[in-house]
Design a protein around this nucleic acid. Structure first.
Length: 478
RNA sequence: GGCCCUGUCGUCUAGCGGUUAGGACAUCAGGUUCUCAUCCUGAAGAUCGCGAGUUCGAAUCUCGCCAGGGUCACCA
């Protein structure tokens, strides 16, 4: 069997979002599953819609997820160039071949004339087919007018690796433009030539292209090219409606998720589960596992909605389960400013305490600030605590003083802190809801924190006592 | 409008003629010495879009209908 070669072929017209990236993931998985090659090709044939940084955005997005390509515009390969605008001569020579074979001709109509024909068909409630208006005599192609494929309408039956058996009638086939008047090819033409020359074995592309497949099949025949395996994953839908995911409907750029600290592992897992599962109850899949077990035949045919909620759950899962040093490494750019002067070891301790509370890494500053700097005293924390608000200020100060006395004698190991604070519960005859809440508020000045023994242990003795002192002074003054 | 695709808990899905229709996210309740989480346990949640038919038996097969989506460019 020939080598499996798949490609991701986006046009650089904007930033990548989850829908497009899923097509890339599936193509990557199909290739790697069979030890094949994954190719990146940039389809920049629409000069008007090209966006400057879009290619970079595509590259950054794929790299973020670790979907590395074997051949592409940046790294080359045996079948380059991998940017369509650099392949115009190739398309031109194939187009000339079609002209010679009488399977392509110059479109003589102006845009206005074409528009008029379309409107007429519409008012007559008839489908518009260009082939009903083919010129009787073909002009010589000098590159200034669009070149059209001369189609041979017929019925097709074909198999799609995901959608199964599909069929279409002759009405789906028309003369379409293969080279535009600016000399650039259309997608419909260029991708077929490129897939052939780049020896692509599986064409994986999203469902919006499905209605065009009969046209492609007709062109494959005219060019006498073998049709690759086609696989058409269903659409990824917006969270709020049932339309396909798109920028207009508010789909986030993939890199936005990187920015707020969504781990690539979580994003890969999320995207893979959109329309695919392995048939078991397993929900967690690493990229390596996916490469092993992914199969196109298990891809769903119905559309799937992208869920940020589920993404956050997955992200939390990976944050909790990743190796601590690996996580520490990924977290680097998310620490609060105040953390800069602290050691790696200290940060690791903090990270281990807060990681089970994280949904995304950008929450780190909010949850860890008090480990690195003294927050201003916030009396609301006591006033809004249902147990503490019932106590008089003098009682609270008294409790704080007793706490201080007790903690002075502690070596601040977790074991010793547990022992000392349990003794204190008995001594003061207070429930944990009062005493521990108070200590937590005094030492963190935050509405939420990790468990009290661990928190004190990491903060250390000096800082804990200093903060308790500060609160005693503050309350005594009032 | 033509052509094409889809239709199981709110969401993602398992299911391929016989199941109490299973799981996950989300929701709600209880437990974990204090908060927020995590974790554990439990609850609620789908007459399988609707209607016929085939069959002893249908979410699963057939037909019709309905609903949703895609596409009909010198865009991809």
């Amino acid at each position: 069997m020939e080598q499996v070669r798949t490609r991701f072929a986006p046009s650089p017209t904007g930033a990548l979002h989850a829908g497009a990236v899923r097509t890339a993931l599936f193509a990557y998985l199909v290739a790697k599953h069979s030890n094949g090659k994954f190719i990146l090709r940039i389809e920049d044939t629409d000069q008007l819609r090209n966006v400057d940084n879009a290619t970079q955005n595509i590259i950054d997005s794929l790299k973020y997820l670790g979907l590395n390509w074997d051949e592409g515009p940046d790294i080359g390969g045996s079948f380059g160039p991998y940017t369509q605008s650099q392949r115009l001569d190739i398309y031109k020579s194939w187009a000339n071949k079609l002209i010679t074979d009488k399977r392509a001709y110059v479109d003589p109509y102006s845009k206005e004339e074409l528009e008029a024909l379309r409107t007429k068909a519409k008012t007559q409630k008839k489908p518009f087919l260009f082939r009903d208006h083919r010129p009787t005599k073909f002009e010589t192609w000098n590159g200034t007018k669009p070149l059209r494929f001369l189609s041979e309408p017929k019925t097709y039956k074909w198999n799609d690796a995901i959608m199964g058996n599909l069929s279409s009638g002759p009405e789906s086939i028309d003369d379409f433009i293969i080279i535009k008047s600016d000399g650039f090819p259309t997608y419909n033409f260029a991708h077929i030539i490129d897939d052939y020359l780049m020896k692509i074995s599986h064409v994986i592309r999203s469902q919006e292209f499905l209605p065009s497949v009969p046209k492609f099949l007709n062109l494959y025949e005219a060019l006498n090219i073998q049709v690759p395996i086609m696989a058409t994953p269903p659409q990824v839908l917006n969270e709020n409606n049932s339309r396909k995911l798109s920028k207009r409907e508010g789909a986030k750029q993939l890199l936005e998720y990187k920015k707020i600290g969504i781990l690539p592992e979580a994003m890969i897992n999320m995207i893979a589960s959109l329309g695919w599962n392995d048939g078991t109850n397993n929900e967690i899949f690493s990229l390596e596992q996916l490469v092993k077990i992914f199969e196109l035949s298990r891809v769903q045919r119905s559309g799937a909605r992208f869920s940020e909620q589920r993404l956050l759950w997955l992200n939390g899962y990976y944050i909790r389960h990743l190796d601590e040093n690996q996580l520490l490494n990924k977290v680097k750019s998310f620490w609060p400013k105040s953390a800069t002067k602290y050691s790696k070891e200290y940060k690791l301790k903090v990270l281990n305490l807060i990681k089970e509370r994280l949904k995304y890494l950008d929450e780190i500053p909010k949850l860890s600030e008090f480990f690195f700097s003294d927050l201003p005293i916030n009396n609301q924390l006591i006033l809004k605590n249902s147990s503490l608000s019932k106590l008089k200020t003098s009682e609270i100060v008294d409790l704080l003083k007793k706490t201080k006395a007790s903690l002075m004698k502690s070596d601040f190991s977790i074991e010793n802190l547990t022992e000392k604070l349990n003794e204190l519960l008995k001594l003061t005859n207070q429930p944990p809801a009062i005493l521990f809440s108070l200590i937590r508020i005094a030492t963190t000045q935050s509405p939420a924190s990790p468990a009290i023994f661990e928190t004190l242990n990491v903060l250390d003795k000096d800082r804990s006592l200093k903060r308790i002192d500060a609160l005693i002074n503050n309350l005594s003054e009032a």
